[in-house]
Design a protein around this nucleic acid. Sequence first.
DNA 1: GTCGGTGAATTGTCCGACAATCATACGATT
DNA 2: AATCGTATGATTGTCGGACAATTCACCGAC
Lengths: 243, 243
Amino acid sequence: MSVEFAPLTIEPAYRKVAAAIGARILSRELREGERLPSETELARQFKVNRSTVREALRELESRGLVQRRTGSKLMSVSRPQQGAVAAGVSHALMLHDVTVRDLWEALTILEPPIAAGAARRRTDADLARLITAVEAFVAARADTEEAVRLTAGVFRCLGAATHNPVLGLAQEPLLQLLEPSLRVMIDEVPQARTRIATAHRRLLEALQARDADAAQQWMARHIRDFRKGYEIAGIDLEVRVET
Amino acid sequence: MSVEFAPLTIEPAYRKVAAAIGARILSRELREGERLPSETELARQFKVNRSTVREALRELESRGLVQRRTGSKLMSVSRPQQGAVAAGVSHALMLHDVTVRDLWEALTILEPPIAAGAARRRTDADLARLITAVEAFVAARADTEEAVRLTAGVFRCLGAATHNPVLGLAQEPLLQLLEPSLRVMIDEVPQARTRIATAHRRLLEALQARDADAAQQWMARHIRDFRKGYEIAGIDLEVRVET
DNA sequence: GTCGGTGAATTGTCCGACAATCATACGATT
DNA sequence: AATCGTATGATTGTCGGACAATTCACCGAC
């Protein structure tokens, strides 16, 4: 008779407290912006020490579920910010030895449909932001650092123009991981800036015309160009991405 | 004369400590599995109180950068686990009012290329796992809960078979968010199980033959079927996803 | 070599303390 | 009236110390 017991996990109090508060936030019982009770009050309610409450708050804080509004002492409930969540994903991917090729492949899959969706659903405000971003890229030719940021910025504009938060959040980690290799590439490949600027212009035209097919095709070409740029710059596709 | 000062941010000590340790992990100076010094020792090195160290550890813990190995007291460096990272993304998306339509659109974009990549790069072990998953789905027809899990499981097998961690991690939050609506659909639509099983079989055949086109097409059809299922089940596409 | 005991180290939790900061109210000044 | 200074109380960030429960590392008995 095999008497087997499942290994029982003893949750420390700080995790239970975090789970209890987190559950209330995820269930929207606590709404965004609502202020949490003070640490002392939480300690009283949960019947634990304030130190325990503080450890729980640190966990919720790093998950982006609570936040301190500037110049306020009490924590308030918040929605995790896209950038912060994506940074977590980026770090995870980096530590899992993602290669430049993996990244590039994901971009080839994700970005063309995003461009198409943006062309279909962009508002005039989206278009205006894209124009600003594209013009800024042309203006920043001299400054590599700025050019890299603005290249990612154009992608972000397109992601936002799809009005689908899933797509925006899915591409964000890729953009964060892309930047280092993009920096090398823009620095090493003389014609990179011109080709990127051209792609931007075509994408912009496609969005203006709401031409999803054109947007998709130009984006696909844009991403393919990245790969060519990597090869010219001598970046090994099998090398791990860094931050 | 507009004398303007940037708002200066004062970092609390617990965040500085977390940043310091986190940076060492991200730079791979601390390798996976390596054990961290004890809390007391860290407090001594950073010249802060142990409570402060503990708050920092809670942050790193929730980011998945450190972990306690079962039956060990000392924290050890770890890579964030896919499931945990994805859960954070899922929660973020949910709180950002992602709709079933948003989710479905992302699936239509992501999954067909994943299926194609899986067909191209799957190993025999991947195939074996997929066969197991598909057979388990057929066997679990009676149990809705199990059927839902196994449907997601087939997607996960395909994601893993691409051997691209970016794709695996990109789809995971979608799968997590999909489950609740999938549960309703499978329960409400009588023919859903059969159609899903058929799709699974076709995908399996495509992977066996390493036929990327077929895999992509069947997956596209599979995802389109989901949408039909939602309509039949009377699920409003504009409704927010839940957990 | 395996087993079990023993003492040190470590964590989880608690308590109490205090300076710095923030919120608020209330006058005082211009 | 609007602004400023001040007093008061609440709250956070940080500290020090404490202790039970658990784990670790060593050592000796068999």
